[in-house]
Amino acid sequence: MTAPRPGSVGFAAVVALIVAVSVGPLLYAVMTSLEGGGGLFTPGLWPDEAALANYAAVFRDQPFARNIANSIAVAGAVVAVSLALAVTAAFALARVSFRGRGLLLGTVLSVSMFPQVAVLSGMFLLIRSLGLYNSLAGLGLSYLMLTLPFTVWMLTTFLRQIPKELEEAALMDGCGPLTVIGRVFLPLLWPALVSTGLLAFIVAWNEFLFALTFTLTAETRTVPVAIALISGASQHELPWGRIMAASVIVTVPMIVLVLAFQRWIVSGLTAGAVKG
């Protein structure tokens, strides 16, 4: 393959293909969600009749508004707890050199490589013994295993880049570590907190296996489980219009969020992966 120059027809075609493949499926889902019952089963590219009937049906047939609220509550709480725990730990891991630090960081990183299924039965028993089965609190607790390792890792990476002189001055003035974190680091760290928090939010918002296993009733389900379990009269009559409507409802906010913060997310991902 020779590399076509920008401006040439070949280059434009490659760019167009990339955009079409990336965005096409989502646009098709939007079109399906706008189609009425009859138009759905004639395969084609354009909706026969634009209708919001599917969107209304999603909220009518199941507690979808409740599912969205559940997802927001769990993801929000997980982000807050993860960041609070991670920022103090990351401060110690990044700024103080002590024996066992590398091992500790390595262990934390290896937890983020855990297959979720490996803790499934143990986590199930933990959640049940705490009386948190089929509750949002139990789900949030289990999500800490997914979000905490990489928030610690990313914030540690960010904190290492802040010059040492800053905190040394504060420490010499007799400030305690929590004061140093609050007064010196948090103001510098908030872009990192936003991108780390956003990635943690996305992980919690998208999580499926724990949510499927640790909840039982429609009222405690989060959005991914609710969408996966939308069913019709039989296996072969899935209400695709409604499934696509639900999909569009939960996807559009994520896309807006990701695009609005895209530079920070990319810098967060690369800090977590490339420099790691």
């Binding site: 725990l85 103090t88 110690a92 855990f114 803790v119 499934l120 143990g122 295993m145 390792p149």
Partner: peptide
């Protein structure tokens, strides 16, 4: 160093509860 361990402790404790313990139990 003592302060560092105190700052790490809450995070380490949570990870022990939600990762190490369930894995051991599994």
């Amino acid at each position: 160093v003592r302060e560092a361990w105190a700052l790490i402790a809450p995070m380490a404790l949570v990870l022990l509860c939600v990762a190490a313990w369930p894995l051991g139990r599994t």
